[in-house]
Amino acid sequence: MKYSFSFLVVIALALIAGVGSQIPGMGYFFGVVIPYLAFAIFLGGIIWRIVYWAKSPVPFSIQTTRGQMKSLDFIKHSRTGAPDTNAEVVGRMALEVLTFRPLFYNTKSELREGPKITYESSKWLWLFAIVFHYSFLVILLRHLRLFLDPVPVWIGWIEFWDGLLQIGAPTWYITDVTLLLAVVLLFSRRLVNRHVRYLSLMNDYFPLVLLFSIALSGILMRYMLRSDIVNIKELLVGLVTLHPVINGHIGAIFYIHLTFISALLVCFPFSKLMHAGGVFLSPTLNMRNNTRAVRHINPWNDPNIKPHSYADYEDDFRESMIDNGIPVEKGLPPKDEPAEAGAEKKAEE
């Protein structure tokens, strides 16, 4: 159910876009209206989500330390494990976000006879994730060619390196293959790894199926069912310059690709895909570990919450304290002169 639903949705989207866009006059709907609507929801949704997050304060400084704090001069400080300055926080975040550091250090635990627990490095998730994200980034940058006129020179460089293997005609891009592969592997991992299998939701399968479909439809379009690239570029440049036009025929595969992307854009702000933004706001990662040196302010700190006071405490135990020479603030009520004297005496032991 969890993943079959995802496939059903994607197939339905493909059918609707594939057939619908080929009905005369509907090209505009699938080529202009849907993408605009999706992009508006994407942009509005992201802004809404970030404002929603930002509205809540960070009351306490709850950084997690993954290394030595800054303390004494002769103790080596882990600057990216327990950052003390903003620059060090940037360093830590760069490692977390750009290299997926926690996943790099991932381990796999196994229970063996004894019982004995063993831990071994397990970098598969890190590998799949990093291949996926960087492939996606490169593909995204390459796609700017379709939106920009003239095409910036650096896009050519990316294409050159991405096509370095020179296989096939047109040349296969490395990232097209790696993206598809990474998505398949991430999906398979959800089925094979018993922990992840048990806890995965439709919310986890659907984005993978959608991403797979986006990549697949893109690959089909570029390498097999070649659509008219001139008309596509005209439409896309028109979309970004807010003067969209559709001249001539564009194949169904393009509309399917575009509709998948639109679906992804719509889902993005309302799903776990927002981890892309959330990671930067995660208080365990983005705070300095200097909380004893610099006071962190909690906007809702309640000044009315006070400790059970010393005065009340002494009221409860005064007599015994005085009798035993523990210093007190107030003597016993009048007529207890000797005890009063005892109060000024300091503890002896």
Binding site: S56, L103, L125, H195, N203, S282
Partner: peptide
């Protein structure tokens, strides 16, 4: 909010 919204259930 962040911890409710951002988990991708990667299982790490």
């Amino acid at each position: 909010k962040i911890f409710m919204d951002c988990c991708v259930r990667c299982g790490a």
